[in-house]
Amino acid sequence: MFNNQDFMELGWRNDVGSFAVKDHDVGEMARSEEDRLIHGLKWSYDNYFDHDQKDNHLQIVPEIQKVEEEVPKTDLLVVVPDEHSETGDHHDHISDNRYYLRNKHEKPKRRRIQVFSDEESDGFTREVPSVTRKGSKRRRSEEMCNKMRTLQQLVPDCHKTDKVSVLDDAIEYMKSLQLQFKVMSMMGMNPYFPPAILDFGMNNHQLTAMAVARQNVANQMMSSQLIPASNWPLPPFTNFSFPHSPNQPLFLTTTPPASSHQCLHGLVPCFPSFLDFSSHAMRRL
């Protein structure tokens, strides 16, 4: 049957692309339910993925069935829960709203259609009224694209437009943002709070790398913990950097020379992999 994983995929399939209903004459000839069962509806997406130039055919077949569990075709993306199955047989209404759901007067008993409307539902299946499935699909794909675009605008330095890259960048950016937020909030609440207690987890790599990179240049060794803002793009994040604007203070930067070794003492435990180096540095104290 379906699971919600399918629906997530369904959402993702609706990328920029055009829709083409292959069998235009389905409506005419498929008056009877048997016919519909046989002919179904074939949708084909063109170039639904940026770099995918091949034809990607996504089959959506209305599951018209006489029996509960019978599935005529394999790509079942449209199924309807049966809660409102009518008692009578309604054969007459389906001129152009074959896929009209939730219409108690018109919905035939045997048609089982389920459209997953992701922006409205919280994960459970919902029946959405849609005169044509094509319309709702296109809407959904457009909305998905819009959201990807907004995300791309929010995430700094996100140049590639394909979904995978945008998502990748967004994930990295979110992690860094969260980290930055954590650190800043701790500082804000108690500047005397020894940063040693901060647990950066896997972000140790990031801070470590930056600290190491800076080590070479620092004569005030303590201040070397903190990287100048301009060095932000560093190996762990190849195509990622915070915006260099005053409104968005960067996370790490050089400290003034004064009394920085206290910073070092505080920060060292946060970088477990950095410990050797720091102990060496500290020997120079």
């Binding site: 922006e119 990807m148 967004a170």
Partner: peptide, 21 residues
Amino acid sequence: SDKVSASKVLQETCNYIRNLH
């Protein structure tokens, strides 16, 4: 669970990033 749709995730991501900013 796999109950959250991709679209919703994206939406919440955008909101979350704005909030964090």
